[in-house]
């Protein structure tokens, strides 16, 4: 569960990125975060990952107040939140399999667990047959699904996707959305920041619209809006 209570963030240049935000997202929800560039979507994501701290308010993830976490506790917060980005951020010198296995290696999973878990996750995102290829040999959609696999391989309860389809053409974007939906159906909470109006309209999921640092709209089964 994610809960933001009266969260405000002003950057050092005086820009008020978020003003008194209140959001509550239950376990297993699929939520779109929409709004114009610079409205505060990225700031919200950075707050959830504790890359930055809010000036005011509390952020509670799975019952823990993130704003009160110590520095050395941050890695354990992040192990519970998978992230994918617009630019995939894959390691080019590693194969698909190795990229996903890498995520388990850095949290010190055993080789046995890695050998068992990675193929399961790759088949979930439909890349079993491409596990020995390098990212440069894949399409954009496939690369994004590798990064999805990497984000969920350690079994986080929350998946944050920051414009995951931003670099993709409509067809491959839908492949990624299919995988995201699949992941959500397995019980993972998905929070996706996006500009893709057609996707948001077609999926009929909860939509939170942020404008000028405030919540403009929060619809249970909404569309992108204007």
């Amino acid at each position: 569960m994610i809960e933001l209570v009266n969260v405000s963030k002003t950057f050092s240049d005086g820009h008020k990125a978020l003003k008194n935000i209140n959001i509550k997202i239950d376990n297993g929800e699929f939520v779109f975060l929409v709004g114009p560039s610079g409205a505060g979507k990225s700031t919200l994501i950075k707050l959830l990952l504790k890359e930055i701290d809010p000036d005011q308010g509390n952020i509670i993830i799975n019952g823990k107040d993130v704003t009160k976490l110590k520095r050395r506790e941050i890695p354990y917060l992040r192990r519970n939140i998978g992230v994918v980005f617009q630019d995939f951020r894959l390691l080019q010198e590693k194969t698909v399999y190795e990229n996903v296995a890498f995520a388990m290696e850095v949290v010190e999973a055993s080789p046995k667990e890695i050998r068992r878990q990675v193929p399961i996750i790759l088949s979930l995102v439909g890349l079993s047959k491409k596990s020995n290829l390098y990212p440069s040999q894949l399409s954009g959609g496939e690369q994004q699904r590798v990064s999805l696999a990497r984000a969920i391989v350690n079994g986080p309860s929350i998946l944050i996707a920051d414009e995951p389809t931003g670099n993709l053409d409509p067809d491959t974007a839908w492949e990624v959305m299919k995988s995201l939906n699949e992941i959500n159906h397995r019980g993972t909470t998905v929070l996706m920041a996006t500009h893709a109006k057609d996707i948001v309209d077609a999926m009929r999921k909860r939509v939170i619209a942020i404008e000028n640092g405030t919540i403009a709209r929060d619809d249970k089964k909404g569309g992108y809006g204007i």
């Binding site: 890695p75 951020r89 850095v106 949290v107 010190e108």
Partner: peptide, 16 residues
Amino acid sequence: RREIGIMKYIGATDWF
């Protein structure tokens, strides 16, 4: 630096 960035998002500890 790219690898380090990814490791941080995945939740690698500082000492790792």
